[in-house]
Write a protein that binds this DNA or RNA. Structure first.
Length: 611
DNA sequence: GTCGCTTGCCAC
DNA sequence: AAACGTGGCAAGCGAC
């Protein structure tokens, strides 16, 4: 095993150093590794490049961007057309492209973070951690030294002096580690049959970078207005509760529990850890008392204000939020989005989604994969009746309820239990959990599960096959895993082999989504309009000027996303009407929201909700 | 003051 | 036999 930490690390401080670096660049190597150090995490919200590093097996070069940025660009231009390796390419490439005119050739990019994540997503993908594991155990030592030095000097990544040896030496090791990691991981990808999954990740990376750069336009005055209203409402509720029930802080569960107990309310449910009485939404709604309702309303308004509107106000730059999209956010290959968390905006009311608006002269479209996880379940299970029903365009939950109850038109309740049972299968839930989430007695849940298994024996067979395969691999290799169609390795935690079913379905759905992004982005008209993905939904922005053209673009996107060849079931996509606000997709007229929300509680002398 | 844990809640 | 999966985020609160 090579020991990259003994490799020469050099800081560029003079024109002589520049020349030595350019000489070094002439040497033959299969790939040039590159990394950056920055002041923060988001190039679109003001964070800047500090260092650009290049490396191979022989050396790591550290270029202070402020003084010697031109040299970094010179290196990139001279190397252009040849392979480059990064560890988390969208990050470094976005930072560099944000501060100069050089444009990377994404088809030449290798990404070691994508490699490791496709092979094992259960462990840290941080470069130093992976480096210590696979290349040199001392790889994380430099990080500790830097951390100590930064603590002593009270520095952050934005302020630590470039010439501090702990800083630039730490930085210079990274491209060398990346270089060795690529060498280590490429054969492993081949061996594991995971190359297709990796290549999809690499192809997707540029789309992610593009979406981050584009960002989403936000109606700031609206956010500000909503935030102010909600905060004022919270204050009113606080004052009301303090006055009537001496409950000083509606945000403190301990204080609320004390106040409720003083009112003679007896709590029973415990929290998950069992340490305290639970006071969650379920408990609150089960208590018929004005204070309980006030706590509930306070929570809701707090949540809307602090998790959503305040974040939008905080993260917007010139009216646009550029969230951080983590392409490999979840172990299954799903993406996650933060600062702000645009994948978790409430759907119960349109209030928050109404904050998102298209750019001037544009409209939004929401493209949604229809019931993709249920469809993939049918695909993997090879369940003929399910597959037929899907092909015939039937709603799967209604179909299931029809079969299970022998009726043409199932009741809402019958469809509901069918739906919950389907999802319980996808998630690996047992009878108890199903009974809880579907809100039916244990025996009803059990009875329906039995009917479900009788109706769809393929599903049961699929689940036991997956678990079986996982277990036998565990016996052989020490860990249970399955692979998605493109080869992504999905490992189970010990004792949780049942979760492999979910990982396979969720991971495959994630692959479908990434494939869709890549295919959409291949069309320049559509790439510009890609704004966001929410697991099975893509938000697209299209010029509004010509109604025919915009409808054509939206339909083009829909057709590109659909897949009728790779699975036993069609992946079908529904396209929304053109939207002037994201909230339009929820269908509820905006002016009704106020009424609906404030009609919740009518009997208490509490302040009225502003929304 | 910061950090980490707990609790709760938003989405798919 | 039975086992719900993946995330992000805010506030309270005790420890340092």
């Amino acid at each position: 095993m090579p020991i990259p930490l003994d490799t020469r690390i050099e800081l560029v401080e003079s024109t002589a150093d520049c020349n030595r670096l350019l000489d070094w660049l002439e040497r033959p190597r299969p790939v040039l590794a590159c990394d950056t150090e920055t002041t923060g995490l988001n190039p679109h919200t003001g964070d800047k490049l500090r260092l650009v590093q290049f490396g191979d097996a022989t050396a790591g070069w550290v270029i202070p961007w402020f003084q010697w940025g031109g040299l970094a660009v010179e290196v990139l231009e001279r190397w252009h057309g040849r392979r480059m390796a990064f560890h988390n390419s969208p990050f470094d490439i976005s930072f560099i492209e944000n501060e100069c005119d050089y444009r990377f050739d994404w088809s030449m990019v290798d990404d070691t973070r994508a490699m490791i994540h496709v092979l094992d997503s259960t462990r840290s993908t941080a470069l130093k951690m992976v480096g210590s594991r696979l290349i040199d155990p001392r790889a994380s030592a430099g990080e500790m030294l830097l951390k100590n030095a930064m603590g002593v000097g009270k520095w952050t990544f934005a302020t630590v002096p470039v010439k501090l040896p702990e800083y630039w030496a730490y930085a210079g090791v990274d491209p060398v580690l990346t270089y060795y990691l690529r060498e280590d991981l490429l054969p492993k990808l081949l061996e594991a049959n995971a190359m297709n999954a990796y290549q999809l990740e690499v192809a997707c990376a540029r789309v992610i970078a593009s979406m981050q750069r584009t960002g989403m336009r936000v109606d700031l005055p609206y956010c500000d207005q909503m935030n102010t209203k909600l905060l004022a409402y919270g204050e009113e509720l606080q004052a009301w509760a303090a006055d009537r029930y001496s409950c000083r802080n509606l945000g403190s569960n301990a204080a609320c529990i004390r106040a409720l107990e003083l009112e003679g309310i007896v709590l029973e449910k415990r929290t998950k850890s069992g340490k305290q009485y639970a006071l969650d939404e379920d408990v609150l709604l089960g208590i018929d008392h004005p204070l309980s309702r006030a706590i509930h309303r306070f929570r809701k308004s707090q949540k809307l204000a602090s998790s959503y509107f305040q974040n939008l106000l905080e993260y917007a730059v010139q009216g646009v939020v550029h969230p951080s999209i983590n392409q490999m956010g979840a172990r299954t290959g799903r993406m996650s989005i933060q600062r702000p968390a645009l994948q978790t905006l409430p759907k119960t009311s349109r209030t928050v989604r109404d904050a998102f608006i298209p750019r001037e002269g544009h409209l939004l479209y929401s493209l949604d994969c229809q019931a993709i996880e249920m469809r993939l379940l049918a695909h993997f299970a090879g369940e003929p009746s399910m597959i037929r029903a899907i092909r015939e365009g039937k709603d799967l939950h209604t179909f299931t309820a029809q079969l299970a109850y022998g009726v043409d038109v199932p009741t809402k309740g019958q469809r509901q239990i069918a739906k919950h049972t389907g999802f319980a299968r996808i998630y690996g839930a047992g009878t108890a959990k199903l009974s809880l989430t579907a809100g039916v007695p244990l025996d009803v849940a059990r009875e329906f599960q039995h009917r479900y298994d009788d109706l769809f024996p393929g599903v049961r067979g699929f689940i036991s096959r997956v678990t079986q395969v996982g277990m036998s691999r565990k016996a052989e290799l020490g860990y249970a895993y399955v692979q998605t169609p493109l080869g992504r390795v999905q490992r189970a935690d010990p004792g949780k082999e049942y979760a492999l079913v979910n990982y396979l379905i969720q991971g495959t759905a994630a692959e479908v989504m990434k494939r869709q992004l890549v295919d959409l982005a291949a069309d320049p008209d559509l790439e510009r309009g890609l704004l966001l993905t929410v697991h099975d939904e893509i938000l697209l922005e299209v010029s509004a000027e010509d109604p025919e053209r915009r409808a054509e673009l939206a339909n083009r996107a829909r057709v590109i996303m659909e897949d009728r060849t790779n699975f036993h079931i069609p992946i079908e996509v529904e396209c929304s009407e053109p939207l002037t606000r994201w909230g339009d997709v929820l269908g509820v007229p905006a002016d009704l929201v106020q009424e609906v929300n404030s009609a919740f509680y009518t009997d208490d002398e509490q302040p009225d909700s502003p929304i």
